[in-house]
Write a protein that binds this DNA or RNA. Sequence first.
RNA 1: GGGCGAUUAGCUCAGUUGGCUAGAGUAUCUCGUUUACACCGAGGAGGUCAAAGGUUCGAGUCCUUUAUCGCCCACCA
Length: 879
Amino acid sequence: MKLEKTYQASQFEDLIYALWEKKEVFQAHPESNKPKFSMAMPPPNETGTLGVHHALFLTLQDIISRHARLKGMDVLWLPGTDHAALAVNSLIEKQLSEQGLNKHQIGREEFLSRTRLFVASSRGTMLSQMRAMGASADWSRLRYTLDDTLVRIVNETFMAMYQKGLIYRGARIVNWDPNLETTVSDDEVEHQLETTKLYYLKFGPFEIATTRPETKFGDKYVVMHPEDKRYLKYKHGDQFTAEWINGQITATVIKDNVIDPEFGTGVMTITPWHSEIDFEIAQRHNLDYEQIIDFHGNLLANCGEFSGMNIREARPKIIDKLTTKNLVIKIDENHQHNLSINSRGGGVIEPQIKLQWFVDVNKPVVEWKGRERSFKEILTDVITEKDIEIIPSRFESTYFNWINNLRDWCISRQIWWGHRIPVWYRQDVDGREEIYCGLTPPTDESEGLRQWQQDPDTLDTWFSSSLWTFSTLINPEIALDYSLSFKDLMKESLDFQKYHPTSILETGWDIIFFWVARMILSTTFMTGEVPFKKVYLHGLVRTSDGKKMSKSRPETIINPIDIINQTGADSLRLALITGVSPGNDQIFSDDKVKAGRNFCNKLWNIARFIEGTLNGVDEEKENVEIISDADHYIASKINHAQSQIIELLDNYNFSEAYDVVYKLVWNDYADWYIEFLKQYPNKSFMVSSFKSILKLVHPFAPFVTEAIWQTLELENDNVLALQEYQELPRSNQNQVRAFEQIKNIVIEARDIVTKTNLTNLTLYFTVNESIKNNSEIIKRLVKLEGVEEVTSGTGFYLTTTTYKAWLDIDKSTILNYLNKLNDLISQSQKAIDLLNNRLNNQDYVNKAPKNLIDQTKADLENNLKYLGNLLEEKKRFSD
RNA sequence: GGGCGAUUAGCUCAGUUGGCUAGAGUAUCUCGUUUACACCGAGGAGGUCAAAGGUUCGAGUCCUUUAUCGCCCACCA
């Protein structure tokens, strides 16, 4: 097939991807004896479509995977999607409310079936988008967090932790989202700075400051610092009466160290049911708790005339009443305050005391490397003992800081979408609660009316995600056989045996706590292994003016599919890895996409040239013959670049690796080797060197490279995606150096031609095989009249080559060039001075490494020789 | 309050154990329609590497301090 003048990505990408799938090139082969490489794809939320940040991680992981395949490894990149309990649940609730409905009206079953319908269609879209980006994942192993197998593993994990006492049920203060009517974990709470009013109120003999007067109904304690001099006359436990919102109350004085005497009046009242800090104070002093606000955000009956009112409308009315009772002292209108909100599309958090399920992070009962440890200890130890490496390493301190502040993980949610908690309750004959925790519902129903009822709650999404690396490797064929224990399942699953622990986890730093840490927690507990040996963290993708992309501001959202449709997936991928570095945010711009597209087109046109030169001669493709100086030169460049690229990619330096690829293709291959081939084609080496080039570019731009590979039929039936890196034949260093001399001659001669505006020049050289062999290419590249061998030359003596060559420029014109010559001389003189100073410095000679000194000497020698040439020229033309 | 990051050419960024006469892409300027490519080719200009001090034969790179911007964690009622 004839290649068109410019590369049209849209004509090829779908076909190429279909070809890869047909040839099953992405499939892992656990039975193979190649070295293994495994990686789990972070499962995207099934909330609709993919964005640029998905494109980024798909690109990075795809490069990692394709690179590993090119190295001859058996690669498993396991894809999947996440049911995203909270995110999807809130989306569906929003849809319902737009139809004037709510979940209670349609009931649990109907709600779940609507949700299933929605996620199924999301999944379809998302999977096709992943393919469009070129993701070389093993689709035959696609997993979903609500698959039967994964549900079983979730239950296995819950049960095992429950039996060890690591999961417990307790009434604790939790983050309650009154909009979604569920608890959320500490990590899901975001703080937003807002300006609010700070009310100073009279409370008995005290003055207190509060931002939330609506919680103050139940306040019957005042707390102050034990050493606050202003209040020394009040003793801990003293009681007093005060006129308050709904009449007179009796209150008690409490002294506690957490109070900051500097803030407000140094006195506060507490509401233990609705504040984390207050709850802790109440626990310390064994105080009473009273609920003021219900789970919808309305005031309860104990608020008298305000009961039933929403807290937002109640606040000003309460202040009005306090004002008329003369209890408001002053109001600070500009108080800076942190508002807690649910980051997963919910409302303002209202702390509540609630009976919930928790994972205990401090109980030292988890067996790890032969010692019983707590989850907190294991989380720390796997990093300090180097079982897991975090890239970049600076995130280790962020991670440790999080562990230090870690509290028990609340895992129960009051939403419907998700993994149901595998716990059943019933009343025993004495009316006490019996609890059953198991993989399947209890079968013992003999007690008549006392039926088992399953816990209505579901689990935090991250509980199931935390099992992702190993739950996805359990063989689904045997997973529902309950005669097998979980240990049996691990043993009988070939994939688990071969691919776990996974080689690396590539993900964003923003989910290091949600996901990375919790994977370590669950996986070490269930399998006795770490989930992965390395973690590579990427940053956020920002808009060209540095803004965060967010769904609430649609103008900041870039749809990767638009870019793919316009310029192709390869250009998108190249744009995303330009300037990417671990842990740092990056800016995405059209310019980068354009640069990527141009690169693809450059490669495409190299292919067109090769196609034209081959002219359908097939037998030329097979023999690798390395002949000319240029062949040796490019072979040495390619081999060198290849070893650099392998090393850079092994260390996840994507941007730098691409930089090496870019220069190799554009500067070495296209600018020099192709130009040379126009004059002296060596079809066999042209093809084999180009094949090497395509392999090196393939991980970055898989579509265009495969499209070229296929259309040129470079390996008949084999796809590029299944090739392996290969060294080209070793090049002869003398020939490499000879070509470099030719390059120098061309570069210098071009420069002179440009500067002097002369045409039709001739290059003279004294007897020299290399120049003779390459005379046509020199003539062509410099656009000379001729290249002639002479016994002694005249004109301008070229200074950058060790060969003897002259350009036939007459004296009067060369004077125009003299300024340039002077520049070169002073530049060269500077370099020589610098090198000389270095070598004259005894400390340098004594302390610097030997090879560096040798290098310096060699540089000096070259510079001196070069300067000599320059000076000789100058002298000749100045006479 | 605790911690982390950034600061290098107009813009976007590389620069991994100190060896740099500091590099790319893009933008800009000059020249060029050479049968792969104008999504191109050749050439040029553009930087006291945020500031100050220190360590060293040698600092963009290591240490200290400061400034500006950004982020994370904790949190004051």
